[in-house]
Design a protein around this nucleic acid. Structure first.
Lengths: 220, 220
DNA sequence: CGATTTGTTGACTCTAATCAAGCGTAGTGG
DNA sequence: CCACTACGCTTGATTAGAGTCAACAAATCG
């Protein structure tokens, strides 16, 4: 069972911002469905669209020269992704769970931003938020395995809106690649947090946060 | 001698973009000088300005709960910084070398962006570039010490425009905090790269890149 | 010139990676 | 329905790489 992935209702803020973005400008977007692990766009492909998650979960990642994969971000319903300046994509995007994705032509969005100040302002705000998220993610990568996993769980709880039980749509490999760890270390750390009674492993992909202050105490 | 810090001419692209940003809109900015290690803004302070480096080098950083410091970015002449959405600053900014900084009121910039589409577009482009830089930095943090230091040296060479000799305006501690390493590891790695004839340590803060392909070969 | 900060080097420790095996849960087909 | 398989996850043993602690050298400054 990996239900719940499509049921994630979005976090409100993101959806509202994006709605204002696309809605106000009356931008025609194409909505497409993607199967689990399907590629939405690939590295070095033409950068012609901006994307919004309607439902499901998306990861953006890059393959390192040694074959390892680094996941830069998970994108939840309402989130925009593919926000880049270059003519070609710098990273790739795949569906973690079955997704519905809204695609808007970059040129159309640009025109909309030129004619509607609110669209431009929204787009800038969304980009700045993404910048801050990226910087926060960078901070994570220099911390201990326990701190990374704890922060990840709290982030997922915050993003899915759940206070207690979180359903993780992504595999341990995805988590490891997001946190810059190996799957073994992620697994071991989850075991440790369980033994420390900070969390409870209901199922492999369903985790209950038992001691949120303890988890938060591991953070900066 | 830590000369060269004020002589860095900017990288062209950054300066041009920023000039268009501030110039076109006829934005009145205040230019201020900051001594070495002076704080330009602090974490949690009011986020009322956007800043541009005129000369010198700026670092933006955050202090972790365990006392360690993580540097998110170095900002060179022409670069904008302080691009955040929140009402308060999320990180702090300090002068690595003596700096001249142009400060523009966020509200004024926002008004300029509303009246001039080109300003809005420039601001968005600059923010997206910063996002990509931040993501690239995140990638660095999951690599080996050698790869991080090599990438750092190449980045500095690219930013300062020098092909061969780089003058590093920042201390080993700054480098370590930027790369998520300790000063000892940075020092040892520089020694290793010297022994491998990839670089040459002319002075502690002056490094000549002897084998750029070898250094680049360590990257993704 | 001494004093102080900054950088290098060495010895040792410890965390997370690696290599390898075993478990559990679908999913498949007889 | 039950092997059988395949995959994702966990656990164990060992290793490698960076951190820590400590001493020393070198540059900078008054």
């Amino acid at each position: 069972m990996q239900s719940g992935t499509q049921a994630i209702p979005g976090t409100g803020g993101g959806v509202a911002a994006a709605d204002a973005l696309f809605g106000t400008a009356a931008l025609a977007g194409v909505e497409l469905g993607f199967a689990r692990n399907a590629e939405i766009f690939g590295e070095d492909e033409d950068n012609d669209f901006v994307y919004q998650v309607v439902s499901g979960l998306v990861r953006t990642s890059k393959i390192l020269c040694d074959g390892r994969r680094q996941i830069g971000a998970f994108h939840f319903p309402g989130d925009l992704f593919g926000l880049e300046t270059g003519a070609r994509h710098w990273c790739s995007a795949e569906a973690v769970s079955p997704c519905r994705i809204l695609m808007v032509r970059r040129s159309a969005l640009q025109r909309a931003a030129e004619s509607d100040t609110r669209v431009a302002a929204r787009l800038l705000a969304v980009t700045m938020n993404e910048l801050q998220r990226s910087q926060a993610h960078g901070l994570l990568l220099v911390r201990s395995a326990q701190e990374r996993v704890a922060a990840f769980l709290l982030e997922m709880a915050a993003r899915t809106g759940r206070r207690q039980a979180i359903d993780l749509p992504m595999s341990r490999q995805d988590i490891a690649d997001y946190l810059g760890l190996t799957i073994e270390t992620v697994s071991r750390t989850i075991t440790q947090l369980t033994e420390a009674a900070a969390i409870e492993l209901v199922a492999t992909r369903r985790i209950v946060l038992r001691d949120v202050p303890a988890l938060a105490g591991l953070n900066a």
